[in-house]
Simulated assay, not measured.
Amino acid sequence: METILSIAGKPGLYKLVSRGKMNLIVEAIDATHRRQPAFATDKVTSLGDIAMYTTGDDVPLWQVLDNVAKKEGCKEASINYKKVSGKELRAYFKEVLPDFDEDRVHDSDIKKLLQWYNILVTNGYSDFKATLAPEEAESSEENKEQETEAAK
């Protein structure tokens, strides 16, 4: 599992490369592959920690991106999210995630999701589950070890 990050105030997405004492070293997911530090003062969010609001349980971001990929055939989004009206944007998103919470999911959230989708697909990321989903096998093994230690 790679750690794909979003950094508030900086455009695009980043891949975690290394950790320093006071910062993270990240690499831009684009043609430049520019590396730069992300400091503790930066608001850094892992895409694996993001979910979309629905009328039921929240849906992890990787599942939503996977739904977009199925709709688009793993190509860039067919809709120009920068220029379409809010109504058209929501109609498109309803095809991707039919039960999204229309009160809590804003147009800007949908635009950001489509922007991230295009960045990831353009740069060769298409298996969103493998890339973004938390690995359950590791966490369950760690839990078993902790339970064993606690029992001693």
Rank of each mutant, 00 (worst) to 15 (best):
M1T: 12
E2T: 10
E2Y: 11
T3L: 02
I4K: 03
S6V: 01
S6I: 03
G9V: 00
K10P: 00
P11K: 03
G12Q: 00
G12R: 00
L13K: 00
Y14Q: 02
Y14D: 00
L16M: 12
L16E: 12
L16A: 11
V17W: 01
K21S: 08
N23H: 13
N23E: 11
I25C: 10
I25N: 12
V26I: 13
I29E: 02
A31R: 04
H33L: 05
P37Q: 14
P37K: 06
P37L: 10
P37E: 15
F39R: 15
F39E: 12
F39V: 14
A40Q: 15
T41S: 15
K43Q: 14
V44Q: 05
V44K: 05
S46H: 12
D49P: 04
I50L: 05
A51F: 08
M52F: 15
M52C: 14
M52Q: 09
G56F: 04
D57V: 02
D58M: 10
P60Q: 01
V64D: 01
D66M: 05
D66R: 07
N67V: 06
N67C: 08
A69V: 08
K70W: 07
K70E: 12
K75V: 06
K75H: 10
E76G: 05
N80D: 14
K83V: 07
V84C: 12
V84N: 10
G86R: 10
K87G: 09
L89N: 07
R90A: 14
R90K: 15
A91P: 01
A91M: 09
A91C: 06
F93D: 04
F93P: 01
K94V: 06
L97M: 13
F100E: 03
F100L: 11
F100G: 07
D101N: 15
D101W: 09
D103I: 08
R104G: 02
V105K: 08
V105W: 03
D107H: 15
D107K: 14
D107F: 02
S108N: 13
I110Y: 03
L113K: 00
L114R: 03
L114W: 03
Q115I: 06
W116S: 00
Y117H: 06
N118G: 04
N118E: 00
T122V: 04
N123E: 10
G124A: 05
Y125T: 01
K129V: 08
K129P: 07
T131P: 09
A133M: 14
A133E: 15
E135K: 07
E136W: 09
E136A: 14
E136G: 10
A137S: 11
E138S: 08
S139V: 11
S140H: 11
E142A: 11
E142W: 11
N143Q: 13
Q146P: 04
E147R: 08
E149A: 14
A150T: 04
A150F: 07
A151P: 01
A151T: 09
A151K: 14
A151W: 10
K152A: 08
K152E: 11
